[in-house]
Nucleic acid binder design. Structure first.
Lengths: 250, 250
DNA sequence: CGCACCCTTGACAATTGTCAAAATGCGTGG
DNA sequence: CCACGCATTTTGACAATTGTCAAGGGTGCG
């Protein structure tokens, strides 16, 4: 049974990437109660200024954190795929400082902060795993700062696609045929701080080098090493190594 | 007695900004044992790839997180002032994905991960406060992504100075005479993804509007509202409101 | 079939970077 | 106290990257 299409399964998969889960932890995770909601594309489901009492996990589709300038220009702060908990921070930060919007139609599962806090109290292992999850979230932000400031348009796109490929692989949603990626070039531009025009040219350059294919909502990496080289990509920041600095008590 | 010149005092000050500390928590925090080290300016004291067994708190001076391109170009990911714990994340992420360097001569206090974990186990309140601290760290990264992608040179500098002013005030290191800020224009450029030349012109523009003064390692904000307007600054992301979403049990 | 939405292309503008050099300020040692 | 060296700030000319604006073409969906 695949773990990557329900909220409890995805959470177990994600937390076990941080530390080995014992039977007790498995049961605690499985015992969480989720409210599942399906949403259309381009739907803002949490707004800046909100004080949510639930955190969410993306089960299907793609979502994004966004923030707007005074003139209404949107910046995409991060892109999220199944298994991500893009507002985990709201468990300890009352007020949202950004929006959450769907990119494609999405299924999102909500779990109450109270339940999550109880989970942390019942198992300091699970508390640590959730904390670690939020720390890796922060590591992705650091990588974005670096990428957007230091790399040219072509490299920025390559770096971003490398990141997305590894993240899709981690939830087993990528194979030889690539991965479903429903972001338009316009939106990718809003992630990378570039205009559609620049993204389009960068994409063409990467295709001309036979590094990738981008077609109807799907990305195929043809030459991983080449893409890594162009994007100066070092995936360390994803911390997918499963070696947390503490000994897990099973 | 000022709390902002020793590690235990700064930590108590910081954690109490997240939630009211009871006597028990005060004692636990005061019981931590620190190793204090003084360092010269421009000294790299934690390197990418390291697997530290200590987290640190900046007691005096200014430090920065940095990351380098293949060509050796440095990006400053964040700037840290007394009271900050710039490698708190290493408590749950084994491998450093960036460097830590001093900007000015600095005093840095180290506390072992083991002690911190014990602290979290002994008081879930303190655990939550430390977690929240790391979540606010992440909020600053989001603000940096927004700022560096959406704002022009002048606005970017204004935004950055607004942020630093509020952070200095939070540790009571700012007054009418401004705050000590030992970053050269070169370094500020590395924060904002701009060259010295651009920073210099942006700084001149802000001075010409009588918004700030920058002189020998000191910044004075002359017109806070004006600076906020130019920088499109909304300090919400600092979450200095002392209203965590949980009831503190005292 | 027509309307969105997205991708693509081209000409031109604007911001920022690059390079180089001069001016200023600061600390150290004579 | 002054001289020197070094880091930092400032300035100007020019280049490069990216943005802006505009338009055409493709594709899918109602």
């Amino acid at each position: 049974m695949p773990l990557n299409d329900t909220a409890p399964g995805l959470l177990a998969l994600r937390l076990s990437s941080h530390l080995p889960l014992g039977r007790r932890e498995d049961e605690l995770v499985a015992g969480l109660s989720w409210r599942v909601e399906d949403m259309p594309a381009r739907h803002t489901f949490i707004r800046e200024g909100d004080t949510p009492r639930y955190s969410c996990m993306l089960v299907r589709g793609v979502a994004m954190r966004t923030q707007y300038t005074a003139e209404g220009q949107r910046q995409i702060l991060s892109v999220h795929i199944p298994g991500d908990m893009p507002d985990l921070q709201s468990i300890h930060i009352r007020r949202m400082d950004h929006d959450l919007e769907t990119v494609s139609a999405a299924r999102i599962a909500f779990v109450s902060h109270d339940d999550l806090r109880r989970l942390c109290d019942d198992s300091s292992q699970l508390g640590a795993a959730l904390w670690r999850e939020s720390l890796i979230d922060a590591a992705l932000f650091r990588a974005a700062i670096f990428r957007n400031a230091q790399l040219g348009a072509e490299a920025r796109l390559a770096h971003f696609l490398c990141e997305m490929k590894l993240r899709y692989e981690a939830v087993e949603l990528a194979d030889e045929a690539g991965f479903e990626f429903p972001m338009s070039q316009e939106l990718i531009g809003e992630v990378l701080g570039l205009t559609v025009v620049s993204i389009n040219k960068a994409a063409q350059a990467l295709r001309a080098q036979h590094l990738i294919r981008m077609e109807k909502g799907r990305v195929v990496v043809l030459d991983w090493n080449g893409l890594v080289r162009v994007g100066q990509f070092d995936g360390t920041f994803l911390h997918q190594d499963k070696s947390p600095p503490f000994k897990a008590a099973v």
